[in-house]
Computed example of a mutant assay.
Amino acid sequence: MSNEFVYHIVSAVDWANWADKPTYEAASLRSEGFIHLSTDKQVAGVLERYYQGVPDLLLIQIDPARLTHELTYEVSTNNDHFPHLYGPLDKDAVVSVEAIR
């Protein structure tokens, strides 16, 4: 896969809980072993499938070249290859944080 940006959708509250730390860990890192990410083309579908009516969401833009943990593209929903981060997200890899909706 190319080295284009990848994205993570998170509630503003969850992101704020990690504000004073150099890394971020989604709950899925503990429960599934990785952080769910999306390509630019996958974000709209992920929002539609999993975040209908969820308020105060943020879209975290990530530069894969700056990650220190393994980023793997794996088959998931609709046989599409989704990026999964096997470790905490280094905030140095975050390019931007934008409110959704």
Results as ranks from 00 to 15, higher is better:
residue 1 M to A: 15
residue 1 M to L: 12
residue 2 S to D: 12
residue 3 N to L: 13
residue 5 F to L: 14
residue 7 Y to S: 10
residue 8 H to C: 13
residue 9 I to E: 07
residue 9 I to F: 03
residue 10 V to Q: 08
residue 10 V to I: 14
residue 11 S to T: 15
residue 12 A to F: 02
residue 13 V to Y: 07
residue 13 V to P: 00
residue 17 N to T: 06
residue 19 A to Y: 04
residue 21 K to S: 15
residue 23 T to R: 07
residue 25 E to F: 02
residue 25 E to Y: 06
residue 25 E to N: 15
residue 26 A to C: 12
residue 26 A to M: 07
residue 26 A to R: 04
residue 26 A to E: 14
residue 28 S to Y: 03
residue 29 L to Q: 03
residue 29 L to F: 08
residue 30 R to W: 13
residue 30 R to F: 14
residue 31 S to T: 15
residue 32 E to D: 11
residue 32 E to I: 08
residue 32 E to C: 12
residue 32 E to Q: 14
residue 33 G to T: 00
residue 33 G to S: 11
residue 35 I to C: 11
residue 37 L to M: 13
residue 38 S to H: 11
residue 39 T to M: 08
residue 39 T to N: 12
residue 39 T to H: 13
residue 40 D to A: 14
residue 41 K to M: 13
residue 42 Q to V: 04
residue 42 Q to G: 04
residue 42 Q to P: 03
residue 43 V to G: 10
residue 43 V to R: 03
residue 44 A to W: 05
residue 44 A to M: 01
residue 45 G to F: 02
residue 45 G to Y: 06
residue 45 G to H: 10
residue 46 V to T: 08
residue 47 L to H: 06
residue 47 L to F: 04
residue 48 E to W: 08
residue 48 E to P: 02
residue 48 E to Y: 09
residue 50 Y to L: 07
residue 51 Y to F: 15
residue 52 Q to Y: 08
residue 56 D to C: 06
residue 56 D to P: 00
residue 57 L to T: 03
residue 57 L to D: 02
residue 58 L to G: 00
residue 59 L to K: 12
residue 60 I to A: 02
residue 60 I to H: 01
residue 61 Q to M: 08
residue 61 Q to W: 01
residue 63 D to A: 14
residue 64 P to H: 06
residue 65 A to Y: 01
residue 66 R to T: 03
residue 67 L to W: 00
residue 67 L to N: 02
residue 68 T to Q: 09
residue 69 H to E: 11
residue 70 E to D: 13
residue 70 E to Y: 01
residue 70 E to F: 00
residue 71 L to D: 04
residue 72 T to F: 04
residue 72 T to I: 09
residue 72 T to H: 09
residue 73 Y to I: 02
residue 73 Y to F: 15
residue 74 E to V: 13
residue 74 E to T: 12
residue 75 V to L: 12
residue 76 S to I: 02
residue 77 T to Q: 10
residue 79 N to H: 10
residue 79 N to V: 01
residue 81 H to D: 08
residue 82 F to W: 09
residue 85 L to F: 11
residue 87 G to Y: 07
residue 88 P to W: 09
residue 89 L to C: 03
residue 92 D to V: 07
residue 92 D to R: 09
residue 92 D to N: 14
residue 94 V to C: 00
residue 94 V to K: 00
residue 96 S to L: 05
residue 96 S to Q: 10
residue 98 E to N: 12
residue 99 A to I: 07
residue 100 I to Q: 09
residue 101 R to T: 15
residue 101 R to P: 03
residue 101 R to L: 12
